[in-house]
Each structure stands twice: as structure tokens, then as C-alpha cells.
Nucleic acid binder design. Structure first.
Length: 282
DNA sequence: GGTAACCTGGAT
DNA sequence: ATCCAGGTTACC
């Protein structure tokens, strides 16, 4: 489900809903989601109060006043909801409940059960959690350097789309924003990354930053089922140029958008605006 | 690197 | 029945 903009909107919603609440009990019907087990979560979290919620890439970092951080990854379908009372009707696909001392309960929903939660000592998450240890720069002008980006992709012969989906290259890009950024940059998704010029790399870098910022501002993309922690859908789906638009005319040239597979992922692009080059040009 | 695996539901 | 899905990771 969520890429960086969606996770950021979940973070904003959750911040308003649960900061300041104290944990009473954690429950689950699918223990695999809770790394270390539900007993461990109860032992560590009972009586702890949420102080703030951060985000790194697509990971949510829920901070507690006892020095622990709950690292949460929503993967494809994870969602959070707050029930004001614990005995409010249980939604479908609800797999983890975090009950608070004020009687409310945070519920984690995940149709495919792909999401994971892990408790770590605050400050050690970027060492202990493999996905965070490898995480590349956040896609902001202050943290994501165009020259460094070029130097990285320059060495990779994989399709450029696969490379920008690699979270160690840049944090937070997923299938939708990869396709969109490549369309904006007029790059074919299957173009070997090593053949991308420095100029093209800078353009792609700028478009990734701009596209993710825009998506955050619009509340994320809801093409399948995304809603934030307050149940709000995003508005970014109305701004997409290629994702989920196969068979419709390109917004630039009216050529029909096509869908192919790149690195096992459905990939949308304009065959006229985004041509595959055999070799590096300058 | 490519590929299967983790899961379930909805579309074709 | 078969294929597909905003993701990541463990294997040839």
C-alpha cells in the first residue's frame, strides 16, 4: 500500500491521535506480525507512554518514554485506526490491538499480513533493523545529493526503475512514484542505470524530490485502498500521469500509455516520451 | 541479478 | 482458474 508520502500522512494522523497515550495491553491473532512475540510486546510496553512518532523511508518509528521505539512497516496493505473504546466493533483484517489506559485502542489492519512491528532501544534502530541500516538518503534537497545519486546509479547496470526502487539508493520511492518520476524525466523504466547521463540523473533526482513532496502535500495516493490513520483518502491519484493509466493518452503527447513488467513489477510508461536507448549519449 | 516466498481478496 | 496488487527478503 504505502510509499513514503502515504507513510508520512499516516505519521501525521497518528501523531494527532495517539501521542500522550499510555499502553495497557497488546493483543494479536497473527503473532508473526510482532517480531519477538506478543508477550514480549506486553512486557516491554505496558505502562509506557507515546512521546512522538517519526518516520524514516517507509518505516514508522513510534517513540515511548521508556527508551523504546516501535518500528512499524506497513508493507503492502497495513493500516492503523483508532477506536475510542476497546469494545467498538472489530474491523475486518484487524490483527494487532494496542489498548491504552484511557480506554481507546489502536488497531493495526493488514489484509495480507505482510507488515511487521519490532521493538528496539531508541537510537539503535538504524543498526538493529536491517531495512533501516541500509536506508538511503531521505528525498529532500538537504539530504539527497544529485552528484552522489549519479555516482551510485552510474555503477549499476540494472534497469533505472529497479535502482530507484532500491531503498538504499534513495528512501521511500515505491512502484507508483518510480513510474511517475521516470515519466517526468522522460526516461524509459528499463534503461540500464549505467547509461543515464549526469544531466538526466540530476533531472530524475529533482523530479523524485518534487513528486514525493507533492504527494505528501496532497495526502498521498489512494488507487487501491490507502487511507491514513484518520480514515482520509489521498488526492494524489488525480495527479498521476502513467501509473494505473495504461490504455489512456499520454498527457504530453497523446500516445497510448502502455504497461510492461520491469523487475517483476507492473510498470507504466509512454513509449513515445520515454524511449529506450542502446548506449549512453552525451 | 533474477526468482520465490510471505498472504489474501478482487478482477478477468 | 489464473493473474494481479503502494514491499521486502531469502535464496540460487
Amino acid at each position: 500500500m504505502p510509499e513514503l508520502p502515504e507513510v508520512e500522512n499516516v505519521r501525521l494522523g497518528l501523531t494527532n491521535l495517539i501521542v500522550g497515550k499510555t499502553v495497557q495491553k497488546v493483543t494479536t491473532d497473527w503473532e508473526k506480525i510482532l517480531i519477538g512475540g506478543v508477550l514480549h510486546f506486553n512486557q516491554q510496553l505496558k505502562g509506557a507512554t507515546i512521546t512522538r512518532i517519526d518516520r524514516r523511508g517507509k518505516y514508522l518509528l513510534i517513540r515511548f518514554d521508556n527508551g523504546l521505539t516501535l518500528v512499524s512497516h506497513l508493507r503492502m496493505e497495513g493500516k492503523y485506526q483508532l477506536a475510542l473504546r476497546q469494545d467498538d466493533p472489530a474491523p475486518r483484517f484487524w490483527h494487532v490491538g494496542i489498548a491504552f489506559t484511557d480506554g481507546s485502542q489502536l488497531r493495526y489492519l493488514d489484509m495480507r499480513k505482510f507488515g511487521r512491528m519490532q521493538l528496539v532501544q531508541t537510537g539503535t534502530e538504524e543498526i538493529v533493523v536491517p531495512g533501516l541500516a541500509k536506508m538511503g538518503p531521505e528525498p529532500t534537497p538537504a539530504t539527497f545529493d544529485a552528484e552522489a545519486f549519479y555516482q551510485t546509479i552510474h555503477k549499476r547496470k540494472a534497469p533505472i526503475k529497479s535502482v530507484i526502487l532500491d531503498q538504499s539508493v534513495v528512501a521511500g520511492v515505491g512502484n507508483i512514484y518510480a513510474d511517475e518520476s521516470l515519466w517526468l524525466s522522460r526516461l524509459h523504466p528499463a534503461q540500464p542505470a549505467s547509461t543515464i547521463t549526469k544531466k538526466e540523473a540530476r533531472l530524475l533526482h529533482d523530479n523524485i524530490i518534487a513528486e514525493l513532496q507533492k504527494a505528501i502535500r496532497l495526502g498521498g495516493t489512494s488507487v487501491h485502498s490507502f487511507v491514513d490513520a484518520t480514515g482520509q483518502r489521498g488526492a494524489m491519484q488525480d495527479q498521476l500521469h502513467v501509473y494505473d493509466r495504461e490504455g489512456t493518452p499520454c498527457d504530453r503527447c497523446k500516445t497510448t500509455i502502455v504497461k510492461i513488467k520491469v523487475g517483476q513489477r507492473g510498470t507504466h510508461f509512454c513509449p513515445h516520451c520515454q524511449k529506450l536507448r542502446k548506449r549512453k549519449v552525451r
